[in-house]
Design a binder for these strands. Structure first.
Lengths: 144, 144
DNA sequence: TATTGTTATACTCTATAACTATA
DNA sequence: TATAGTTATAGAGTATAACAATA
């Protein structure tokens, strides 16, 4: 798409197109070789950094609905990557933690993720890559 | 999401989060009020600029599979926004054009799309908005 | 044989509402 | 009654394979 019509100044259109490239890179480096979906990977790395959080908090951090997160947790628990343990202070709630296997996979994926980003830098310089993340983060953050 | 883990340097994660904001803006300004899906809007504006293209070409420009585009064309034709006319030079192929109603809607949506982008500029300055589109476009373009 | 477009099928994603168990 | 989490259901997006018509 080149030209100068309405779509060319529509951010959502460009985000959708860029997401195809990012998704292809994810599938190639992480999704296919490690049998993870994007949301699985995000959850794994998030829980690796922030342990013992409740599903409700994780859902908000990942922009997921509660039912969707339940399904993701089911899948990852069945695979032995995460555990759900009761919250001792509020028995309605649970705490999500990584299993030893989950910790191992999260660590193994760190260099893989770095290689994936390196691959994207064939299209984008390191400076562009950092700036793009900064701008996307600004867009996604609450206005103020 | 703030911190400095693997996700924070993973472009795909930030694209996914930004797409939520862009999609909300689309739904509010265009999707709900005009009964269009994102892909409908993209197709409408694309055909408004580039008439008489074949589905195969449109599918590539929109990063859609051929079957998906067929379904979109069906829906928009049923709504009276586009026509499929036989290609006189190759009778396997068709040419996609806007109906008078399609032209009218495409024109009506131009200021609406501008307002939508203005709304996003509450989160992002005009310069950031332009730079973000430039970087996303660079990411989405073939490497070279 | 190859290509254009369509139809058929299946799988994933996403959202809403209903349910349970605690509070 | 309100909340956390789950289950149930349905709608929309996406991909592959099979098919019809034409080249």
């Amino acid at each position: 798409m080149t030209g100068k019509g309405v779509l060319d100044t529509t951010l959502g259109f460009h985000i959708a197109r860029a997401s195809v490239v990012a998704y292809d890179a994810f599938e190639q480096h992480i999704g296919t070789p490690h049998g993870l979906r994007k949301v699985d990977f995000s959850l794994l790395m998030l829980v690796a950094e922030h342990s013992h959080l409740a599903p409700k908090v994780l859902a908000k951090m990942l922009s997921l609905t509660a039912p969707k997160l339940s399904m993701v947790l089911d899948r990852m628990q069945a695979r032995g990557l995460i555990d759900r343990t009761p919250d001792p202070l509020d028995r309605r709630s649970v705490q999500v933690t990584l299993t030893a296997e989950g910790v191992r996979l999260a660590r193994a994926l760190e260099p893989v993720a770095r290689r994936m980003e390196q691959g994207l830098k064939k299209r984008l310089s390191a400076a562009d890559h950092a700036r793009l993340i900064q701008l996307l983060s600004k867009l996604a953050s609450p206005p103020g």
